[in-house]
Design a protein around this nucleic acid. Structure first.
Lengths: 150, 150
DNA sequence: CAAATCCCGAGTAATTTAATATGCTATACA
DNA sequence: TGTATAGCATATTAAATTACTCGGGATTTG
């Protein structure tokens, strides 16, 4: 039940882009450095995100990536589904094209996996990149507050 | 974000044992046949469940396995944790011994994985083997009802 | 033109998964 | 008492996945 680095790194990268909205395209080099990720590997991940129209790219020197739409319109679920595939603890309850198993109608365990799938999706779909940026800003403020009074 | 066959098979096996309470020990051969699982592989999985005191074994001819306690006292979460390890979409939010990452205090993505972890755990911990058996009985009744009236 | 940067496909080492294989020990029952 | 049954333990393995790396091309800016 682990997320691979694809999902983790990809979300970090998208969060990084969201934090630098309005500064023009952000190069992968910068994202990779700030987030501590291999640049080449990140290239592969962002390629998927571009094809899924979550980011836009600008080629050439001073090029880079920007979010393809407002940070409030991109959820963590959008990103994870691109990088990790449809949310599903087991094949037979995949969000798209679930693999039909012979006991689909009477399989009791299946109903549990459906509930797990839905609860994961609920969380991931309820958080936007904008939420994350605001969260980070608040954390930053709290930390400064804390440091000031100690 | 997929469960391995360990968790899936293991839950099926435990459910099978729960369905045959009161019939004496159930052999792995029977469980494996009914659930369509390799017997040898199942042996490995149930070994973990025995060490975790979720099942009791009876050796020798006519031996087999029984649940170590009442079906109402064994949750899906108990079983999955034994077979798949602590519930955690990423290492740094594992239920036990989370791997400390350097940005633990300010990592924004971490908070999301914590919420995912908790929502998965809530579902898995809320379902007992007894619930599953009752669920299966109800499904069986509904199916008979349906067949009778068509 | 040169440097920066995106873009694309191949290759690869390490790990995990899902078994299989072999051989033992314990017990019931004839 | 012997034999079939069934749990217990360890090793091996083929396939898949993961997490990269590498090399080279296409584009744009200065």
């Amino acid at each position: 039940m682990r997320l691979s680095t694809k999902g983790r790194y990809g979300l970090k990268a998208m969060f990084d882009l969201a934090q630098h909205i309005g500064e023009g395209p952000v190069s992968l080099k910068n994202v990779a450095e700030r987030q501590g990720i291999s640049e080449h590997y990140l290239e592969q991940l962002i390629s998927g995100l571009r094809k899924a129209s979550l980011v836009k790219s600008v080629r050439g020197a001073q090029g880079g990536y920007t979010l393809a739409r407002d940070a409030s319109k991109i959820t963590v679920g959008d990103i994870i589904r691109v990088l990790e595939g449809p949310i599903a603890p087991v094949e037979c309850v995949a969000e798209e094209d679930p693999e039909i198993c012979d006991k689909a109608d009477c399989c009791v365990t299946r109903r549990i996996w459906e509930r797990v799938r839905d609860s994961i999706a609920d969380v991931l779909d309820s958080v936007t990149l904008e939420d994350m940026v605001k969260d980070a800003e608040r954390l930053q403020r709290d930390e400064n507050f804390y440091m000031y009074y100690i």
